[in-house]
């Protein structure tokens, strides 16, 4: 169909519509004439028409507003994105400086106020009352502190029910290694009292092997393996369980953040295969001797490792 034809059609359609409207109008008028009290009906219909128009207008306006708001939002975001980055540090420093200044000023003001209080006769009573209140508060606070201290003190006294188990683990480890291969070992009370062992990086694999093969440990089930970026170092957290001894252990190993590299334990527990891929994908930790290290979630062409704390989203299309 050519342009002209289209236009023709359009015109025709428009004329038809106009004609239809005309007809309708005529009909309506006829009806009105028929009805006796046309006077009362007239204003009503006009009102209807106008209210309809109004509504439509309002809707249009609202839609326009909404769109404008969305646009403004986008702009604001963009502006933020470009501006804050370079100035963020400066701003922070400024804010800090301001905060310090403020704090100093406040302290000075307080001191002054105190002095004034002591001098002023009329305000003595008030000051005394305030002092009393303060003293009471202080006493309370002290009480709390001592309480807290007491609990703090009392906690280590009640040894964790898991302590002997941890000691047993440590003894076995000591039997097998001459030097100290552990960085740390403790009971993680927050994690249902799980014995936690932090091993030195170079002994991670051999200790894992010992954990699986030693009959007194026999951790045949790897429950969880994941990495965490602690900003100064990377960490692998492994949760092991022994069905035979009904005991669990959390094994941790820390590594350099810039070039995180650790032995893979997928040859000991095949179940560690995918979790290690996940840690590689999301944190960039390299696992040596891994059977098939690939970016399991994001795909090989993804730029960056999202779970690292310094990750910058990169997207060519944005």
């Amino acid at each position: 169909m050519s342009e002209k034809d289209k236009e023709q059609l359009k015109k025709e359609a428009a004329e038809k519509a106009r004609a239809a409207a005309q007809r309708k109008r005529e009909e309506r008028e006829k009806k009105k004439e028929k009805s006796n009290d046309s006077a009362s009906e007239m204003p009503q219909t006009t009102e209807d028409v106008t209210s309809n128009q109004d509504l439509e207008k309002q809707k249009a306006a609202a839609a326009a507003k909404a769109k404008a708001a969305a646009l403004a939002k986008k702009k604001a975001k963009e502006a933020e994105g470009t501006e804050t980055e370079p100035t963020a540090n400066q701003d922070l420093e400024k804010q800090k400086a301001i905060a310090i200044a403020k704090a100093k000023a406040a302290a000075a003001a307080k001191r002054k106020a105190k002095n004034a209080n002591e001098n002023g006769d009329s305000e003595k009573a008030k000051a005394i009352a305030a002092a009393k209140a303060k003293a009471a508060a202080a006493a309370k606070a002290k009480g709390k502190i001592t309480q807290a201290k007491e609990t703090e003190v009392s906690e280590p006294i009640t040894p964790s029910p898991q302590q002997p188990i941890l000691d047993r683990y440590l003894n076995i480890v000591k039997e097998h290694y001459k030097d100290d291969i552990l960085e740390d070992s403790y009971i993680n009370r927050m994690s249902k009292h799980v014995p936690t062992i932090v091993v030195k990086l170079e002994h991670y694999y051999s200790l894992a092997l010992l954990f699986k093969q030693h009959s007194g440990l026999h951790f045949e089930f790897l429950s969880e393996l994941h990495g965490t970026d602690f900003e100064t170092y990377m960490e692998i957290y492994v949760h092991l369980y022994s069905f035979k001894n009904k005991q669990s252990v959390a094994l941790k190993v820390k590594m350099d953040r810039e070039n995180p590299r650790v032995d893979s334990i997928a040859s000991i527990w095949p179940g560690a295969n995918w979790p290690e891929c996940e840690a590689y994908d999301l944190l960039g930790i390299q696992f040596t001797n891994h059977p098939d290290l690939h970016r399991i979630m994001l795909g090989e062409d993804w730029v960056g490792h999202p779970l690292r704390k310094d990750y910058e989203p990169y997207d060519v299309e944005v």
Partner: peptide
């Protein structure tokens, strides 16, 4: 998609 942006009046 624009219609899914609902404002106060709606």
């Amino acid at each position: 998609r624009d219609e899914l942006f609902k404002d106060l009046v709606w």
